[in-house]
Amino acid sequence: MTAPLLAIEDLAVSFRTEEGEVTPVRGVSLQISENETVAVVGESGSGKSVTSFATMGLLPRPAGRVSQGRILFRRRSGDTIDLATAPRATMQALRGAEIAMIFQEPMTSLNPVLTVGEQIAEAVRLHLGYDRRKAWAHAVEMLGLVEIPDAARRASDYPHHMSGGMRQRVMIALALSCRPALLIADEPTTALDVTIQAQVLTLLDRLRRELGMGVLFITHNLGVVAEIADRVTVMYAGEVVESAPVRDLFNAPRHPYTRALLECMPSRAIQDASGRRVVRSIPGQVSRVERGCAFAPRCADATPACSVEAPMLESDAGRQTRCLRWRELA
């Protein structure tokens, strides 16, 4: 078996704040191969976006830094480098060329004073070395690829001429314009209407297959995960709590948090005679526990032991679970 395209190993990210150093992401590990979609699921503040920004080398400077672990990426040349320690110039050359990213907010993620064609062509000229005309032609081609009708004309439009769904297609065209090996999609459909959501997901999946990309798909929507992911990593309070192939995770969740998330899904709730359950919420931030399991304060199955001993991420049958009691609960 060849090395995975991306292997995040025991990653921790720290931020300097006025109240001292905080570590919103701890001990995160995940792997992505070519042509594979790995979804990272978690609620706001669970550290999923921070993980993706660390991978892109776009943590806010100088406050944020990778304080532990490695982010191994296999380059097109075959070399494997650690993105956490790569020099700035290397990261700059990689971004947009081999690793690309699309964001949650299509309405604000495009530069309002440049035409969409210019914005795509800029990346193409930089990374592929095309001249102005060839880069423009490539931009038009990319817009066609993401199914924007009349692409040659729309390339000269400004973002404000387009709807949210259209703009997200443009973002996808921009991200894929230099044929990256890895695409990071940070909640790419969250801001869109449900019908547009489905179109964009189908499009992304098609392009993933055509280009053979690895996709790191960040979302809080399990419905989207079921549709698009091969593997799922569930994050809670900055840690991976469960990681499994998508089918296994949906059929037999092992971590109480995953189970609670699945029970929150509307479609399941309808099937369940018992009705919907909500994950017991705690006002304010996700709690940072000093000792024991981070989820224990909200966990329906917690025992006194859970607040004392921190569970390790245990591997079993291609799955990983961070829970002291998963065997007895299964």
Binding site: L58, Q92, F103, E105, N111, E122, A123, M171
Partner: peptide, 21 residues
């Protein structure tokens, strides 16, 4: 702004991000 982050994600130089975008 988000589009400045997009510009950085494109891999263009910081100078260009600041001056153009």
């Amino acid at each position: 702004a988000d589009f400045v982050r997009t510009a950085r994600a494109k891999g263009i130089s910081e100078l260009r991000v600041v001056l153009r975008h």
